[in-house]
Each structure stands twice: as structure tokens, then as C-alpha cells.
């Protein structure tokens, strides 16, 4: 028996029929064709499937889709597009933080969530926020640089807005 799931997806009210036990990851990828959310393990260990649920990072490979009923989900597709990237996305490109890119959507979303709550995080806070994300390519260094860079730019932009 399929169930109706209604939630806000990347700002849009969305309704989709799902199997009761179906995982959010499969609903996003297979039913809604949002393939930017990646599956690296399917067992909650790599962080590639991270999406934001009401602004907080969650692992879509562990979360039954029905749990997002009535709530707001942001996937990488909801963050920015080529002409207007989110500052975190900009910084990832600028600092060379993207190699194969498979960990990138999850990394970018967790970084965004961190900066939304803590605009000037310390190095340790950034590492903690990303500690659930595996990246086999980059050794994390340029990812950390990117998050710091995005934090600075976002803070400066906020400052300007404040003075205007």
C-alpha cells in the first residue's frame, strides 16, 4: 500500500506516493529524480547522502521518507544554480575542494548548515561539522579552506548589508 508524503522540497510544496518503509534517499533519487544526493554506502557511514531537514544535516540513506512529512528538506539542487552559486559552492570551486565530487553535495550542505548557525566557526568546529563525511580524494584540506573562505565572504556580505 503506497502512502502519500507531503513535504517542502527545496522550497516547493511536494506530494509523492511512497512505499511505507521507503528511505528518503530512494524517494529523492528514484521517484523525484533528484540525483544530486549520493549513495556511497547506504549504511550511514559516509555522509554522501546528507540532506538538510529543517536546516539540519540528516542521512537520507537511513531516514524513512515518511519522517519528513510536513517538514522542509533541502537537497543540493535547492542550493544554487550555475549562474548564482551559494557562497559555499563558490568557495569549493575557488579553493579546489572538489575532485571526484561524490562527497561534495553532502559536504556543501553540512557546511551551509554550519555557517547558518555559526557564521564564524573555528577550525575545530568546521572539522567537527564535517567529521561524518568521508572524502577519499582531497585529504579535506581544501574543503576546510573553502568553508573558512565562505564564512569570511558571507560575514563580509552580511556586514555590508548591515551598514546599508
Amino acid at each position: 500500500m503506497m502512502k502519500a508524503l507531503t513535504f517542502t522540497l527545496n522550497g516547493d510544496q511536494t506530494r509523492v506516493e511512497v512505499d511505507p518503509g521507503e528511505l528518503l534517499l530512494d524517494v529523492l533519487r528514484r521517484r523525484l529524480f533528484l540525483t544530486g544526493t549520493k549513495k556511497g554506502c547506504g549504511e550511514g557511514e559516509c555522509g554522501a547522502c546528507t540532506v538538510l531537514l529543517d536546516g539540519q544535516p540528516v542521512l537520507a540513506c537511513l531516514l524513512p521518507a515518511m519522517k519528513v512529512q510536513g517538514r522542509a528538506v533541502t537537497t543540493i539542487e535547492g542550493l544554487g544554480h550555475e549562474q548564482r552559486l551559494h557562497p559555499v559552492q563558490e568557495a569549493f570551486l575557488e579553493k579546489g575542494a572538489v575532485q571526484c565530487g561524490f562527497c561534495t553535495p553532502g559536504m556543501v550542505l553540512s557546511s551551509k548548515s554550519l555557517l547558518d548557525g555559526q557564521p564564524q566557526p573555528s577550525e575545530d568546529e568546521i572539522k567537527q561539522a564535517l567529521s561524518g563525511h568521508l572524502c577519499r580524494c582531497t585529504g579535506y584540506v581544501q574543503i576546510l579552506e573553502a568553508v573558512k573562505d565562505a564564512a569570511e565572504k558571507m560575514t563580509r556580505a552580511e556586514g555590508r548589508k548591515g551598514h546599508a
Binding site: R29, T35, L79, E82, Q89, F92, L93, V98, P105
Partner: peptide
């Protein structure tokens, strides 16, 4: 900037399972 990088940060890059 790396070629293909903007597809990767926006989730548009197409891997096999996509």
C-alpha cells in the same frame, strides 16, 4: 577552476547510478 566543478557542486554531474 576545475573543468566540471560547477556540475559537481550543484549536483548535476551524472555518475553511473544517476
Amino acid at each position: 577552476r576545475s573543468v566540471g566543478g560547477s556540475d559537481k557542486v550543484t549536483g548535476r554531474a551524472q555518475y553511473l547510478d544517476d
